[in-house]
Design a protein around this nucleic acid. Structure first.
Lengths: 180, 180
DNA sequence: CTTACCATGTAAGGCGTTACATGATTCA
DNA sequence: TGAATCATGTAACGCCTTACATGGTAAG
């Protein structure tokens, strides 16, 4: 029953699309899922072994590769577990932006410091946006795959919000520069 | 020097504006800071005592009130600590949206489930937005206070992104309804 | 008088990161 | 042959939430 661990669900979600190694799962986290989810090796590998123990995934060695790869596959139970979780209401959407936190207390350190943080934020977003735009162009051209439709929706969420962030940065900078 | 704990910094930030009790700090978290930061009593109260132990804040009983209030005040050292932290580069801006996670794996459960999650998200945002708009109108009328300028910037961030979320919801719903 | 809210805390436990440890392979 | 990347894991530790525990006060 209860309290599905998110790390299990993300992994099962990824495995529901394709067989993967722990390393590849981490890569997906660092690229495709990056702007709305993340996890470290320290949680991924133990979770994978745990999923196998609970019969939600199976593990096998890759014989084709020269490397010591361990390939994980979702089981029927795993798919059921995932489907159940997907059907439950969302528990938590959380945004935790240190940038906003520091900006909120900006009066303590003055406009220049605030500007520095905003500009750093702007650069970070500007650096990420191209990846999202690239992902969108790829996904838009391959909507035959049923999964791509959903990827595209999340990518578009990212693009829209990032563009809004950049607009806000411009306004915020202007406002601070005006000194009012 | 040292890995500033975020909880200490938020608290000191709030105390830098005004004296507060732990209970009031929690309230600020649940209202003003809500959409970009949060914390529970279980971390606030221990942190407050810790700040006092380290000389970053002082504690006194409220004599005026009939309640057993403990009022915390930031010290000069506390202010220094806060200023230093504010001047350090941002370490982490994190967004963790279960909604996007479930949507990403949406193909597993189909369009109807995806729609349900998007609509729930939409309702949640629609419910929050008025508070932000209200905060903005109040802040816009009292920019004489130096701190308000910074509050306003963060509130505007929230408003802009929430409005973008709502736009995205409309598009996403339409796209899913079209079944393509 | 009872409900809601004010007010402060502790303990257990969960969850996850960081840092460490190890080694193979690919590519320049 | 050396650097980058592939590849898997563990251990320590930190941080936080949840649930528990307690009691006062204001308002209807």
């Amino acid at each position: 029953m209860a309290n599905e661990k998110k790390i299990d669900c993300v992994i099962l979600g990824l495995l529901s699309h394709e067989e993967l190694t722990g390393y590849e799962i981490k890569k997906r986290m660092d690229t495709t899922l990056k702007y709305f989810w993340s996890a470290s090796y320290g949680s991924i590998y133990p979770a994978l072994n745990d999923l196998v123990d609970r019969g939600l995934a199976t593990k096998r060695e890759d014989t084709k590769s020269k490397r010591n790869k361990l390939i994980y596959t979702i089981t029927e139970n795993g798919r059921g577990y995932l489907k159940r979780w997907l059907s439950l209401p969302i528990e938590k959407d959380e945004l935790r932006y240190e940038t906003l936190l520091k900006l909120f207390f900006g009066s303590e350190n003055g406009e220049e410091q605030a500007l520095i943080h905003i500009e750093a934020f702007e650069r970070k977003i500007e650096a990420e946006l191209p990846y999202l735009l690239h992902a969108k162009s790829i996904l838009s051209n391959s909507l035959n795959d049923n999964t791509h439709k959903y990827y595209l929706l999340t990518v578009e969420f990212g693009i829209k919000t990032y563009q809004t962030y950049l607009e806000w940065c411009e306004e915020a900078k202007k406002r601070l520069a005006e000194g009012q």
